[in-house]
Design a protein around this nucleic acid. Structure first.
Lengths: 208, 208
DNA sequence: TAGATTGTTAATCGATTAACAATC
DNA sequence: TAGATTGTTAATCGATTAACAATC
């Protein structure tokens, strides 16, 4: 276990801590113990303390953790307190669902544009966000660079669009396309949301 | 490790095997070794063989695995060769994205209805699927029962709708709501697709 | 002070990898 | 037969849990 290296398992749990603490803060709860936190998340108290100890010492013996300060520690570890610029590529139903309903700014992101090939959409806005021609992605990037590309395009053009985005120098790709991207040549973080894999796990679960 | 128990880690990988084998079959590849399979999935050959040995002996020494028969074995383990009846609850942008674009039948599911509260949608169809009043969910279930409820409703009514669905006796819930459901009292499998958690992991990844 | 709860070390458990006899 | 590759056992690695001294 490398020093300073945080395991995948711990990272997977960070968003759960974040959401839980945010809820506690909203309820006006001032302090929480590893035991209470664990119970409401389905973890063990030991695990909670081990996880936090990866990042520093946030608690106080005999008292527990201060909800607000723990929340802001975790927010800053995840990076949701920053403002990452992102674009949506592909304004179909899913792209529109994200544009209309997803609270990007709650999670450290700002949508700076959306791209599509549909002439009827190009030039219009969804909410505050301009829809631009996907052919102009490179130009759009130069004028107004972004860190993250959100892929909501149809299967056929996924790999091509992904490479173009990675080539521009984005740091991250949020991939909704059910395709595993091959971007080894690029230095880019890919986070997949594979609906099909998720549904197959459910399928297995109910088939047992 | 209980006999006959398959670990979460293995189950997480099953859909990857399935998709990869399906692609190989589509390409007309007749046989594949654990080594080749591993390389294209980013696993180790050892792990592939260990995983498969949870379910039986599918391979042949000196030859490898027959793609078609391995594929159908795995399809039947996951259960995608069955026909599970499902409904979508909440026909907003996301519900519509699923209705229009997601190939449910490729993954062992059949959409038998969708529910919403919007009077303008109720009575219409999206593709082949009728949109019914969510108030009539119980009636709909009696006439035409379903095994899985797909939750795409707004935050405020999630827990209520989830309990109603679980109370009807569905086996599984595919939860897109960013809320952790509390359904301990019910015998129901919940599979979450938490966009927010996924985006936060990406956020962590690019923040490092 | 007594009770509570942390952070950390050690013990356990589970998952991954390595190695290899069996055999196609 | 010789080469390839499985299925499985043993070894390693990593993650979770238990225990407890430190201390608020």
């Amino acid at each position: 276990m490398r020093e300073g290296h945080i395991s995948k398992s711990v990272i997977r749990r960070l968003p759960r801590y974040y959401r839980c603490l945010r809820d506690l803060e909203k309820d006006g709860t001032a302090r929480v113990s590893s035991d209470v936190l664990a119970k409401s998340l389905g973890f063990t108290a030991s695990q909670v303390r081990q996880d936090f100890s990866n990042f520093g010492e946030f608690g106080q013996q005999g008292y527990g953790y201060n909800v607000s300060s723990l929340l802001s520690e975790i927010a800053s570890i995840i990076g949701v307190n920053r403002k990452h610029r992102a674009v949506i590529i592909g304004v179909g139903n899913l792209g529109r669902a994200l544009l209309n309903n997803f609270k990007f700014k709650n999670y450290g992101f700002e949508l700076v544009a959306a791209f599509d090939t549909n002439k009827e959409l190009i030039g219009t806005k969804v909410g505050e966000v301009d829809i631009l021609d996907i052919a102009d992605m490179e130009k759009g990037y130069d004028e107004n660079p972004f860190e993250v590309a959100i892929l909501c395009v149809p299967k056929v053009c996924v790999q091509d669009v992904a490479k173009r985005a990675a080539g521009l120098g984005v740091n991250g790709i949020w991939n909704f396309t059910n395709i595993d991207l091959d971007l080894d040549e690029f230095d880019v973080v890919v986070e997949n949301v594979h609906f099909a894999d998720s549904l197959m796990r459910l399928c297995y679960g109910i088939s047992e």
